[in-house]
Design a protein around this nucleic acid. Structure first.
Lengths: 242, 242
DNA sequence: TAGTGGTCTAGACCACCCA
DNA sequence: GGGTGGTCTAGACCACTAA
């Protein structure tokens, strides 16, 4: 093996890329099992240990899920345990939280400077803007505005959003084959403007948590830019540092 | 090997615990190299591969740092790269941020209900309360109030805090041998009260980011509970989701 | 050149799940 | 019982660092 080329990357990382590419191509769908390590090793012409290391990293990134005795599965936003992977909210009371999305608007537009930059597309590219309210335990807690590259979500409509019972990301995954894999968020504290305050049932000027997110699919491709305003009267945003 | 006992844990995890215990005992200090994998394997009577897996996990948790060709090192808050591991603030302008701590107060007290619960000590236990302002690029951006178990930080004083040039955690590490390894944070948006507003140089009622943190040392032992109020006029809190 | 971590392999056996 | 992932080992070789 040539281990001294300038673009050297270890075998297991090449295997990892091949697996990601297969996932991106839809060879194995979310929730389904991928082939066993033995089979993958034969397919890629490497030892099982090398496949294992590749899968280990993908499992650490929550892209795959290993289940001893059963197999290795493509992680899915359909999985109820995955809901709070991207929704870092908990009730101050400590009780369980039942999120329910209430779509308000779904419209076509052209990308402005900021949206274009965050979505990695050219300015003026067609995008879809979605606005919705997220209710937790029946109360409005989050108001979101999402910007999506239109070509990735063809035919997305308000009816489709209204008819869907589940998380947005599970809809994206099921209907458009787009799996959100990673996201970065920027948090600030802002004052509620009048219209927002009414929707969240708080007084105008109430401090809200502003959460700006860029979400990526396989291959670190950005596909969603969103801004959420969280009412933190009865909920807080949790984070783990290490 | 008895792999079927009810308290079964794999060898590499036992090795990991032994390494953590050695770290906790101060056998190897932050910034120093630990023995090579070969040496550790001989010491614990296992193969190098098993030590490697234990070290892999500790490196993933940012407790150890591997450097090819040099060795494996105990991670340290002295390392300038470690400053932003627990301070998730960036300038909106995108420029670099130079944090500087300005201690205000350091007093002894007895733990109330909440502090006791968060620090894992009995109510009434002696604690130290520290208040400080954190300046970024010269401007006051964060005001912190910290609650520390007194017996873990004997002799902590305002003078000591004032004389220290570096992060608080690097002080704790150098002077008291307490290394912060992990933390959980709860974020909310709140309105600035008068005294806080003055210190942060904002108007009363300005929305601030409230960050409540419990920090843990080796063995998941909580040793610090703090609440910070962040002015997010020119900075934001960053987070990675995966 | 010697020592460190990093990669890759091959094989054995264990733990778990399911038919 | 047979298949899956999980653990552990032993050995070879590569890549990086420092003296």
């Amino acid at each position: 093996m040539a281990h001294n080329s300038p673009t050297f990357s270890p075998l297991y990382r090449q295997i990892k890329d091949l697996i990601v590419r297969a996932l991106d191509a839809g060879e194995w769908l979310p929730g389904q099992a991928i082939p066993s390590e033995q089979v993958l090793a034969a397919r890629f012409g490497v030892s099982q240990g090398t496949v294992r290391k590749a899968v280990d990293e993908l499992a650490a990134e929550n892209i795959l899920i290993r289940r001893q005795g059963k197999g290795t599965f493509v992680s899915s936003h359909q999985d109820p345990r995955a809901v709070f992977r991207f929704l870092r909210l908990k009730a101050i009371s400590g009780g369980p939280v039942l999120p329910k999305s209430q779509p308000l608007e779904c419209m076509r537009a052209k990308a402005g400077q900021e949206a274009a930059r965050n979505l990695g597309v050219g300015p003026g590219s067609p995008i879809v803007i979605v606005r919705r309210v997220l209710r937790l335990d029946g109360k409005p807690v989050v108001i979101d505005e999402m910007y999506l590259a239109a070509e990735v979500f063809p035919g997305l409509s308000l009816e489709m959003l209204r008819d869907w019972h589940g998380s947005l990301y599970s809809l994206f995954e099921s209907r458009f084959g787009v799996r959100m894999v990673r996201a970065t968020e920027k948090l600030r504290a802002v004052a509620a403007e009048k219209t927002v305050a009414e929707m969240l049932d708080v007084r105008e000027g109430t401090p809200l948590l502003s959460v700006e997110r860029v979400a990526y699919t396989y291959g670190d491709k950005p596909v969603e830019w969103r801004r959420g305003l969280y009412s933190t009267a009865e909920h807080y945003y949790v984070n783990e540092l290490s």
